[in-house]
Simulated assay, not measured.
Amino acid sequence: MSHQSISLLKNLISRITTGSRIQTRSVTYKTRPVTVIHGDVTNEVEQVMDAMHAPVYFETYDIIKGKYESFATGNGGIDTEEQSAFECRYNNVDIVVIRENTEGENAVREHQVVPGGVIQSFKVTMTKFWSDRIAKFAFEYAQSNKRKKVTAVHNKQKDEIFMKLADAFFLESSQEVAKMYPNITYDEICIANCCLQLVEKPERFDVIVTQDDLCGNIVSNIAAGVAGGSIMPGGHFGCEHAVFEQVESVGIGDNPVALLMYSVMMLRYLKLLLSADRLETAVKRAISEGKCGNNSTTTQDVVDAVIANLD
């Protein structure tokens, strides 16, 4: 990996993590623009931001006319041990899933060999550069957030590798980067066993990284379901921009808890750390009071409960 790439990744990681607990935090922030792609409950997020006087302003964007490219997705959740107001099958689960966004299935390279009969897909496109980048991203995230272990997920089965060259790039990169972080435990697991372990012993995982976007999508949705389903937030990180949303394919419709928690991720990405801490604390208080886990609770009820718990 080039020095330029490492420098870029360190700069990116520093923007999305809270960093050291003893860092100095300024109470004066420059107002930052936030682009909103309107959904069912994005207006409620704006309500909370206004109530807490977060130093951001909102602008709308037509997603049909725009284009955005991200290279990493980070799906994080609320620790099941902390959120006892929600009924969870497991305790002590706190997993972050990081996956590649621009390669693997997202490469989408295919053509029709025989009209109306045969379609050939070249969806597994991997490069050493991107393998280095996603591995470095995962370990930088783990180190910055005081995580203890990174697990690389691959398609290896026993002594065979289905995608020998693609998996070789990814595992080689992960092993090389792991040597640079001796304080972080590194291990590897095949996708089939990973899915099984997520259901049986999810507490064994800390940070999971996948290069294959299909594997990453499967793993992140299982992890989200284990830890709380539709309340899980997620983010997509590019070199200069980031997009935050509810973890896809879980739950029915948008959940205000997920949207508020990915707003916390957004505020930390913008280095608005005091605002991020205030919002996260308010959401957790509302959850602990049982005001977010009732089926009869409306979206506005959740918003009102969070606003009432703002310091």
Rank of each mutant, 00 (worst) to 15 (best):
M1E: 09
H3K: 13
Q4E: 12
S5M: 14
L9I: 15
L9W: 02
K10Q: 12
K10S: 12
R15L: 03
Q23F: 10
Y29W: 11
K30F: 10
R32G: 12
V36H: 04
I37A: 07
G39K: 04
D40Y: 08
T42V: 06
T42E: 05
V45E: 06
E46N: 08
M49H: 11
D50F: 03
A51R: 08
M52S: 06
H53P: 13
H53W: 09
F58T: 11
F58L: 09
E59F: 05
D62Q: 11
K65R: 14
K65G: 07
K67F: 05
K67A: 10
S70N: 15
T73C: 08
N75T: 14
N75P: 01
G77E: 04
E82D: 13
S84A: 07
A85W: 01
R89W: 02
Y90Q: 10
N92F: 09
V93I: 11
D94K: 02
V96Q: 06
I98L: 14
N101I: 14
N101C: 12
T102Q: 05
E103I: 09
R109V: 15
H111K: 10
G116K: 02
G117A: 14
G117Y: 12
V124K: 07
K128A: 13
S131H: 01
D132A: 05
A138K: 05
Y141F: 08
Q143E: 09
S144I: 07
R147K: 12
V150R: 00
T151Q: 03
V153D: 04
Q157V: 15
E160G: 02
I161R: 05
M163H: 14
K164T: 14
L165E: 14
A166W: 01
A166P: 08
A168P: 07
F169G: 12
F170Y: 07
E172N: 11
E172L: 04
S173D: 00
S173M: 00
E176H: 00
K179G: 11
M180R: 02
Y181R: 07
P182L: 06
P182R: 04
I184T: 07
D187C: 10
D187R: 01
I189R: 01
C190P: 12
N193A: 11
N193D: 15
C195V: 13
C195W: 01
L196S: 15
L196P: 10
L198P: 12
V199C: 08
K201L: 07
P202E: 07
V209D: 03
I218M: 08
S220A: 07
N221P: 02
I222G: 00
A224Q: 06
G229W: 00
S230W: 05
G235T: 10
E240S: 13
A242F: 01
A242H: 00
V243K: 03
F244V: 15
F244Y: 15
E245T: 14
V257T: 15
L259E: 15
L259Q: 14
V264A: 04
L274W: 05
D277F: 03
R278M: 09
A282P: 07
V283G: 01
S288A: 12
S288K: 03
G293N: 05
N294L: 00
S296C: 02
S296H: 00
S296I: 05
S296L: 01
T297A: 03
T299R: 04
D304N: 09
A305C: 10
A308W: 03
